[in-house]
């Protein structure tokens, strides 16, 4: 009798490789190779993980259709099986996979829509935190505000894109028919879940660079400069107010006077 430690590597290898032989410890028990029996395990793994991907990426699913999605997700699942039993975090690499997947090349926005859906899911499960009202900005002098840094919400995600991903996302996360979408428009997205609902916003010009700088811990003044560098029409007041009304700020840290 082989030691039990020898069984699981062979079993595991046979699960994800359809050509790998059924482990000897099982085959020896049957007159004919129990292929249909062993395939129940092979099938459950792939089907359940493809189902998890379909739940995580409903807009991508709708954009490419059932058959294309399942065939693609199946390839992804076999190439990138989960490393953790917590499947809430499974499927993060799907956007990169789609980016380099030749059959999806006809939909150049698909990978960025997947990035936005992943940011949505990450925000959904992120830690909770109380958002700060914009009124918290009041009563501070401009110099102090200029040197302030912000704590952003733990659920905050940013997705930059050369495609209208916020519009495509919004149109495909529901069942209604999709109207005409101007595919030449570029849209950057802000994703945050201040309370129970995940909020997805189309960022104004320079907004992505502005928030990215704040997230890196740079001061409001530095972040405004980053916004201006990214887009000459950057509007600090509009971006700041948008950030607060989305519920994306949890604390303002003003430098203590020397």
């Amino acid at each position: 009798m082989p030691p039990p430690a020898d069984l699981q590597p062979a079993f595991a290898a046979a699960l994800l490789g359809a050509e790998a032989p059924i482990p000897e410890a099982i085959a020896a028990r049957y007159a004919n190779p129990p292929l249909r029996r062993f395939n129940v395990y092979r099938n459950t793994i792939v089907v359940s993980l493809v189902e998890a991907m379909a739940d995580a990426y409903p807009a991508v699913f709708r954009l490419v259709g059932d058959a294309f999605f399942r065939a693609t997700a199946r390839l992804f699942v076999i190439e990138h099986p989960p490393a953790s039993p917590v499947l809430l975090g499974y499927g993060a690499g799907f956007a990169d996979f789609l980016q380099n997947f030749p059959p999806a090349a006809g939909l150049p926005y698909l990978a960025d829509v997947a990035r936005l859906e992943w940011a949505w899911l990450a925000a959904y499960h992120a830690a909770d935190a109380e958002p700060l009202d914009i009124a918290a900005l009041g009563g501070r002098d401009d110099a102090a505000l200029d040197g302030a840094t912000f704590d952003l919400h733990p659920s905050l995600g940013l997705v930059a894109s050369a495609h209208p991903i916020v519009t495509i996302f919004a149109a495909n996360r529901r069942d209604e028919p999709v109207g005409a979408i101007d595919l030449s428009v570029a849209e950057d997205a802000l994703v945050v879940r201040p309370e129970a609902e995940v909020v997805v916003r189309h960022l104004p010009a320079g907004g992505h660079a502005f928030i990215e700088a704040l997230r890196e811990g740079r001061t409001l003044g530095e972040a405004a400069e980053a916004g201006l560098t990214a887009a000459s029409g950057f509007d600090l007041a509009a971006n700041l107010s948008g950030l607060f009304t989305a519920g994306a700020v949890t604390a303002i840290n003003t430098p203590s006077p020397e």
Binding site: M1, P4, A12, T44, I45, A52, P81, P82, S84, P85
Partner: peptide
């Protein structure tokens, strides 16, 4: 049942031989 091996989670309840060695583990 087992469900992980070699850093992969298989998302299924996989069977094991039932004997003294597996009982100990």
């Amino acid at each position: 049942a087992w469900s992980s091996h070699g850093g992969v989670f298989f998302n299924d309840l996989l069977p094991l031989p039932l004997n003294q060695a597996t009982l100990d583990t």
